[in-house]
Lab assay of single mutants.
Amino acid sequence: DAPDEFRDPLMDTLMTDPVRLPSGTIMDRSIILRHLLNSPTDPFNRQTLTESMLEPVPELKEQIQAWMR
């Protein structure tokens, strides 16, 4: 099983494109984008959230890719 820090906190699946929300939570980009289609909010604190506020986490993405090899 993947380490917890590699798993999306909402869907508990392996992240492939991790992004940091303004709240500091790291999620998979595809999952948070799907959530934003229904509700333009951070799913953990209900603060306003837009796609432009998502910050890529390239170092975590590299760690996940290395773990998958």
Rank of each mutant, 00 (worst) to 15 (best):
L60G: 00
P18A: 01
T16M: 14
T50W: 09
Q63F: 08
S23F: 04
P22A: 04
H35I: 10
R46D: 14
T50D: 13
R20L: 08
N45A: 06
D12W: 14
K61H: 07
N38L: 13
D1F: 14
L49I: 08
V57Y: 08
R7I: 09
L54P: 00
E51R: 08
R46M: 14
F44T: 05
Q63D: 08
D8M: 02
D12K: 15
F44V: 05
T48E: 13
S23Y: 03
L54C: 05
I32A: 05
T50C: 08
Q47M: 12
F6G: 02
D17H: 06
R29E: 03
D1M: 14
P43D: 02
Q65F: 13
N38W: 12
P18G: 03
T50G: 06
W67Q: 07
T16P: 04
T50F: 12
E59L: 11
L33W: 05
L49S: 01
L37P: 00
M53H: 06
T16R: 12
I64D: 04
P3R: 07
P40T: 10
L54T: 01
Q65K: 11
P40N: 13
E59G: 11
L60K: 02
N45G: 09
L33G: 05
L54G: 01
L10A: 04
D4E: 14
R20S: 06
P43T: 01
I32W: 00
F44P: 01
P56L: 08
M68C: 13
N38S: 14
P22M: 02
E51L: 11
M27E: 01
R46T: 10
L60Q: 00
N45R: 06
T41Y: 14
L21R: 00
R29G: 02
E62V: 11
T50L: 10
D4P: 15
I31S: 13
T25R: 15
E59D: 12
R46F: 15
R20T: 04
L60R: 01
T25D: 05
T41C: 12
L10E: 04
T48A: 14
S30R: 11
P40E: 11
M53G: 05
A66G: 09
R29L: 10
Q47I: 08
D4N: 14
D4L: 15
R69E: 15
P43W: 05
T41E: 08
K61T: 07
Q47S: 14
T41S: 09
R34I: 11
G24Q: 04
S39H: 10
I64L: 06
P56R: 08
S52Y: 11
M11Y: 11
D17S: 04
F6V: 02
E51A: 13
I32D: 00
T41K: 07
L10F: 09
D28K: 00
V19W: 06
Q65L: 15
D17N: 08
D1T: 13
T13Q: 08
E55A: 09
E55T: 13
P43H: 03
D4M: 15
D42K: 00
D4S: 14
T48D: 12
H35K: 04
T13R: 07
I32Y: 00
E51K: 10
S39R: 06
L54W: 04
I32G: 00
I32F: 02
A2E: 07
L14E: 02
Q63S: 10
R29S: 07
P56K: 06
M15K: 02
T13A: 06
P3M: 05
L60D: 00
P58R: 09
D28R: 00
R46Q: 15
D1W: 14
Q65W: 14
D28L: 04
L14W: 05
I26L: 04
F44E: 03
T13D: 05
I26W: 02
D12C: 15
M68S: 08
M15F: 01
A2H: 08
P22V: 04
L54E: 01
M68Q: 11
V57C: 13
L37I: 12
D12V: 06
Q47N: 11
E51T: 09
R34Y: 09
P18L: 04
G24K: 05
Q63V: 10
V57K: 03
M68N: 07
I64A: 00
E59F: 10
L54V: 04
S52G: 12
M68K: 08
V19H: 03
L49W: 03
K61Q: 11
L10Q: 05
K61P: 01
T41L: 10
L10N: 03
T16F: 11
M27T: 04
P9Q: 06
V19Q: 03
H35Y: 11
Q63Y: 08
I31L: 06
D8Y: 03
L60M: 08
P58Q: 10
T25K: 14
T48K: 13
S23A: 05
R20D: 01
D28G: 03
M68Y: 12
D8N: 02
L14Q: 03
L49K: 01
S23I: 02
N38F: 14
H35P: 00
T16E: 12
A66Q: 14
V19D: 00
I64F: 02
P56I: 07
E59Y: 11
E62N: 11
P3W: 05
R34W: 11
I64M: 03
M53L: 08
I64E: 03
R46N: 15
D8A: 03
T13S: 10
Q65S: 09
P43L: 03
D12T: 08
P18H: 02
M15Y: 02
L37Q: 14
L14S: 02
N38M: 15
N38Q: 13
E62D: 12
I26C: 06
W67A: 07
P9T: 05
V57E: 08
L49P: 00
L10S: 05
L37V: 12
F44R: 03
K61I: 07
E55P: 01
M68D: 09
T13W: 08
H35C: 10
M53I: 05
T13L: 08
Q47K: 11
D4C: 15
P58V: 09
T16I: 15
S30H: 13
V19R: 02
D4V: 15
